[in-house]
Computed example of a mutant assay.
Amino acid sequence: MSALFNFKSLLLVIIFLICTCTYVRAQFPSVIDKNKTGILGVFWKFARIGERLSPYVSLCCMIMAFDLILSLVK
């Protein structure tokens, strides 16, 4: 099933995108910063969300990890 049709999977993909874009921007800022507009500007926005809301993003990562662990145990 595609992540677009499952809300939990869609949230997981968005959280992973935020974390990945934030990490890439920290390591290679020129890759993300040169694309602030257009369709690739979405990655810059994800990186900005990860930088500004990092405590909330990390809390969401921990909640999703805990939920995944519980779903594997069932």
Rank of each mutant, 00 (worst) to 15 (best):
V24N: 03
T37V: 05
M64E: 15
L72Q: 10
M1L: 11
F28K: 03
Y56V: 03
V57M: 08
F46S: 04
S71C: 06
K36A: 04
N35L: 04
S54Q: 11
L70P: 02
I15F: 09
V13S: 10
I63D: 12
F46H: 02
L68G: 12
G41C: 03
Q27L: 13
S58P: 00
T37L: 12
L10R: 09
K36Q: 12
A26K: 05
F16Q: 15
P55V: 02
K36N: 06
R48H: 09
V24D: 01
M64Q: 08
W44N: 07
F66S: 11
R25C: 04
G38C: 08
F16N: 15
F7E: 05
A65D: 13
R52Y: 05
M62P: 06
V31F: 13
G38A: 12
K36D: 01
W44M: 03
K45P: 00
A26M: 08
V24Y: 01
L72R: 13
Q27M: 13
L4P: 06
Y23H: 05
P29D: 05
C19D: 12
F28M: 04
D67I: 12
R48A: 08
M62K: 15
I39S: 12
G38Q: 11
P29V: 05
I15G: 11
E51F: 04
S58R: 15
T20A: 07
D67V: 13
S71V: 03
V13L: 14
P55E: 05
S30E: 14
Y56I: 02
F43M: 00
L12G: 10
F46W: 05
M64N: 12
F5V: 08
F7C: 05
G50Y: 01
L53H: 05
E51H: 08
L40E: 01
C61I: 12
V24L: 07
F5M: 08
I15S: 10
Y56D: 07
F5I: 08
F5N: 12
F66E: 13
F43R: 01
L53F: 07
W44H: 06
L53P: 01
I69C: 11
L17V: 03
N35T: 01
A3K: 14
L70G: 07
F5T: 07
N6W: 03
A65Q: 14
V42I: 15
L72N: 09
D33Y: 03
I63A: 14
F16K: 15
C21E: 00
L11P: 07
P55Q: 02
L10K: 09
L40Y: 01
Y23L: 06
L68H: 11
A65R: 13
V24S: 02
I14H: 03
M62Q: 14
L17I: 04
L59S: 09
L40I: 00
N35A: 06
